[in-house]
Design a protein around this nucleic acid. Sequence first.
DNA 1: AAAATAAGTGTTATTTAGACACGAATAACA
DNA 2: TGTTATTCGTGTCTAAATAACACTTATTTT
Lengths: 235, 235
Amino acid sequence: MSRYLKQTRYLVAVDSIIFGFDGENLKLLLIHRGLKPEKGRWSLMGGFIQPEEDLEKAADRILHELTGLKGVYLEQLYAFGNVHRDPTERTISVAYFSLIDIHQYEKQLSDEYHAEWVLLSEIPDLIFDHTEMVELAKKKLRYKAAIHPILFELLPEKFTIPQLQNLYEAVYDASFDKRNFSRKVLSTGLLVKQKEKDKGGSKKGAFYYQLDKGSYADKMQAFLNFIPNPDNLLI
Amino acid sequence: MSRYLKQTRYLVAVDSIIFGFDGENLKLLLIHRGLKPEKGRWSLMGGFIQPEEDLEKAADRILHELTGLKGVYLEQLYAFGNVHRDPTERTISVAYFSLIDIHQYEKQLSDEYHAEWVLLSEIPDLIFDHTEMVELAKKKLRYKAAIHPILFELLPEKFTIPQLQNLYEAVYDASFDKRNFSRKVLSTGLLVKQKEKDKGGSKKGAFYYQLDKGSYADKMQAFLNFIPNPDNLLI
DNA sequence: AAAATAAGTGTTATTTAGACACGAATAACA
DNA sequence: TGTTATTCGTGTCTAAATAACACTTATTTT
């Protein structure tokens, strides 16, 4: 039934930039390639799309294979299609990035892939154009998080304001005034205060908060200007 | 040299959403498909990528073929890869959108493609998932223009403040106070006042302005909050 | 009981946004 | 040639948002 007879076909892959936060640092989930070519080198998790599989679904599958997680935040980043990006054979790769709570990640299946969390500030050499993909993903994360409340995806369901601030400070490699920060974040109406405190972080303990799932969906688009002086922070 | 033996290969296309502005209305450049399948129906301009052609280059080529223009604003929008989006054969399409000054467009080559400018508010049925592509491009245009000074790409080199305001009003389907608008746009430091006036638009005439190319590159990222109450306008 | 630590909160000054109205320049026309 | 119609161009004031700033509270440790 193929009617586009004279055209060349190409491999199409999906690669995933998976960000995680451990309460302290931002990390990236990488694998040690077990297969040739480039065996033994660091790489993003990826795979070829299958004949009956939508792009999004392929990204979902790959994420699931590596982390065992389903239903996590996943967003298309960019299609990379330089002719020689994979020296073996021309492959167009659609990169996705996702945000997961690092503590939800169980190392179940990861041995199969030799997956490891790596500090975002200490990313090793990666194969192909994966470094470029990661750089773009970092940029987009900063960009988007300045405008939309997506960083909650990196936290557990219950989190404290200081934890949230740590996360923002890690993403922007900056520090914010905690009075202004908490006022701003609470004024969004997105957070619901819990009765329990997290006693782990300090002697006094900090109250847990939870996302108001209802308004979260609504306000996804209404979070502009979250970061002061974004001009200085966005690349 | 192909080592990924067991994988399926796919067609990869590029489709272009080409926006233009005629001083009054926003328009989209569409073609009447001359080839089967779907001959005679409206479509975005597109084509398959060639073996030695980067993605970006393919988008550039297609734009050039249709409009005769080179070096225009071109940005990757999204990769569309649903299994059955092209019923003939599975094709992954990477969509690009571009912004051109409609008056720079000469209908040189367009007869070959039966290209036509169509009002953005009156877009006909399009083949495949092209309607979805256009919707996403509209959304991204609004989104991005609220934050970055990209709409200048739709204007001639010299333009007046009222013309610029018309453009913003067309993009956001809203009207803005001209005093606040001009104060805001001039405060960016992006515009250089010219000595001549445009006498076409009014009896009094309006001064031309030109982009300060130097600061344009710098301030591409520093144009946040250009649109009042963006919450109401961004989808 | 004193000290150490991190949480939580309020005030003020500055900046920015948004609402608002009139004079100036020119062409068309009476 | 004076009057009218049209659009350009500008200034002020009020309200809201931002950012800078410091102390008290709760609790554990010593």
